[in-house]
């Protein structure tokens, strides 16, 4: 395993610490969104759609050995940027690590507004769904 969930979070906090204003931060987030590979069409199924997001978000998870690997996509590029960070932090970890992960980086990089429980911001649903996958895989 390359690095721990905590190490990746610290890395992201340092990266976002380089930006002085929100516009630079969001430009970076948009860039992350654009760079995240698209999910193949056959994985953009109704089953993989995360409910509760204003834009459609698809999340696919599979188990590779002991690790869970996530892939995701969204119609909205900012959402895609957010989910790209979640994948970077959570993908390729064990179900147990994912389930108990405390994602403090979201607040630290100033993106906690996206955790708000409104239908327009689906970050909370994404985190929940990733943890649900971990739970489901650990039960198998």
């Amino acid at each position: 395993m390359a690095q721990s969930i905590q190490e990746t979070q610290e890395e992201l906090i340092v990266e976002f610490g380089l930006f002085d204003d929100w516009a630079d931060k969001y430009e970076y987030l948009i860039d992350l969104g654009k760079k995240l590979p698209s999910l193949s069409e056959d994985l953009k199924t109704e089953e993989n759609v995360i409910k509760g997001c204003q834009s459609r978000v698809w999340l696919h998870a599979e188990k590779q050995g002991d690790q869970i690997v996530f892939e995701a996509d969204s119609e909205a590029v900012i959402v895609k940027g957010l989910i790209s960070m979640l994948i970077r932090v959570l993908s390729h970890h064990s179900a147990e690590e994912i389930m108990k992960a405390d994602l403090y980086f979201i607040d630290q990089i100033g993106m906690s507004q996206h955790l708000a429980q409104t239908r327009s911001n689906g970050l909370l649903s994404m985190v929940k769904q990733m943890k649900n996958y971990a739970l489901a895989f650990s039960a198998k």
Binding site: Y26, A76, I78, S120
Partner: peptide
Amino acid sequence: GIHPQDLGVLLDK
């Protein structure tokens, strides 16, 4: 080529 939600998020900023 732009999703409405992205514009909404940025305009809010």
